[in-house]
């Protein structure tokens, strides 16, 4: 097997090619983070912004708020989205920085849990009592219209009816 011998010209050409290759690789490496930071359009920003409320203009969602503060917050959302952060991560950041009250849906933890569970518990308790009320109502209806097998029967005189009859008899006797 014969040994390959490079001429000076070949060596120079190879060196040049290597330099070009290295420069290309270097430029590609520089380009990767730029490519990763995709361009975020307003719709993507507003998708998150509509669920955030800036304390400067309470009760106005961030996506429609026109103050400078809200514009800054929207830019922050854009930056975080371009860094690859998820919606949940961005909400968590805002809650940590500015408090849970800036979120349209407060996180389901701590005292906020009452806000989520409270209405469900209240409805459940309400339904329970409504069903109990219906049961009692049904039972009382059954008592008012007794059947022959509706339990023990007692005899009872009605004093009011007795008085009324007595008075009629008295009036008749007078005549």
């Amino acid at each position: 097997m014969s040994r390959i011998q490079f001429s000076t010209w070949d060596r120079k050409r190879m060196a040049r090619s290597t330099v070009v290759l290295l420069v290309t690789l270097f430029l590609m490496a520089l380009a990767i983070p730029t490519m990763a930071q995709e361009v975020i359009d307003d719709d993507q920003v507003n998708e998150i912004a509509k669920e955030v409320y800036c304390p400067v203009c309470e009760s106005t969602p961030l996506d429609v708020c026109e103050t400078l503060a809200c514009a800054d917050w929207r830019e922050l959302i854009r930056t975080k989205l371009s860094e690859g952060q998820t919606k949940e991560e961005i909400f968590a950041y805002f809650a940590n920085q500015y408090g849970d009250r800036v979120l349209a849906s407060p996180p389901k933890k701590g005292f906020n849990l009452i806000l989520w569970v409270g209405p469900i518990v209240a409805i459940a308790v309400g339904l329970f009592f409504f069903s109990r009320y219906l049961q009692v109502l049904k039972a009382s209806n059954q008592q008012e219209a007794p059947t022959s097998t509706a339990g023990p029967v007692v005899e009872q005189t009605l004093p009011a009816a007795d008085d009324y009859t007595a008075r009629i008899e008295q009036e008749l006797a007078k005549k």
């Binding site: 008592q143 339990g151 023990p152 029967v153 007692v154 009872q156 005189t157 009605l158 007795d162 009859t165």
Partner: peptide
């Protein structure tokens, strides 16, 4: 004269 009615005791 007296009137009598029949009622059932609730259970």
């Amino acid at each position: 004269m007296s009137e009598t009615i029949q009622t059932s005791q609730p259970e």
